[in-house]
Design a protein around this nucleic acid. Sequence first.
DNA 1: AGCAAAGCTGACGTTTACGTAAACGGAACG
DNA 2: CGTTCCGTTTACGTAAACGTCAGCTTTGCT
Lengths: 133, 133
Amino acid sequence: MTIETMNIREMCDAFDVTPRTLRFYEAKELLFPTREGQKRLFSKRDRARLKLILRGKRFGFSLEEIRQLLDLYHMDDGQEAQLSKTYETAERHLADMEAQKAELEEAIGELKQQMAWGAAKLAELGQRKNDAA
Amino acid sequence: MTIETMNIREMCDAFDVTPRTLRFYEAKELLFPTREGQKRLFSKRDRARLKLILRGKRFGFSLEEIRQLLDLYHMDDGQEAQLSKTYETAERHLADMEAQKAELEEAIGELKQQMAWGAAKLAELGQRKNDAA
DNA sequence: AGCAAAGCTGACGTTTACGTAAACGGAACG
DNA sequence: CGTTCCGTTTACGTAAACGTCAGCTTTGCT
């Protein structure tokens, strides 16, 4: 059942992070590896969370923001206590992400425009070289 | 022509940043305000750059990465020297941004799914309340 | 002239997200 | 049985991106 739990090195290889990072995330209560003796064992749930953590980071969320989001993904039927509060957090994050998507699309458009300008300039320079030859 | 140049306070109000931030960006050569005596005057170009800086930050780029991108946006016909190098930088950034967009769309999809689950749970809880009454 | 507000320049402090080094424990191998 | 990896803890270090505070001009009122 090496498929069910992974040690720290396997995690590092799988997600391209350092051991320090995983221990840091555990300290910050983003991951909850169990122990086999003294060694950490990361469950499938930990791997799902780590994937979300790394994704959140790429979107510019802080680890603390990510920690709150993780609650939504990993709430099971037992603890519906603060579900509606968590739901509201998620709503805000969704709004953030959709706004970010819209802005990203705009930025991509603008960058493409600039690159078209740059490409034209480069073509012009290449032409001048040919003229000189 | 207060429309052409803005002082530091007007900039702060317009972009919701602190004076410290603007001075910091100047020190990092992201902005190039001129001086009227000792005071900074921010041009239209500075404002365009600041807009791009803040956008870049929201997408998780570092100030240093942003600084390199700014070169593309503000290269004029005079200095075509390193144009092709800058163009390559831009290509990488464009690829990054499109990858980010794809991932963001996936993440939005997943978050919506989770929220649907959460909404169902909430409805269920509300129903139980009614049953009890 | 006087004085407060706005800006400026250092310079040190702070938070986030880890990196890095020291010192120790278990296991695996020749 | 020594040593060589892994992995662990504890602790200090660091880069980025500002915050904050002190002390000094400059400017705008009154």
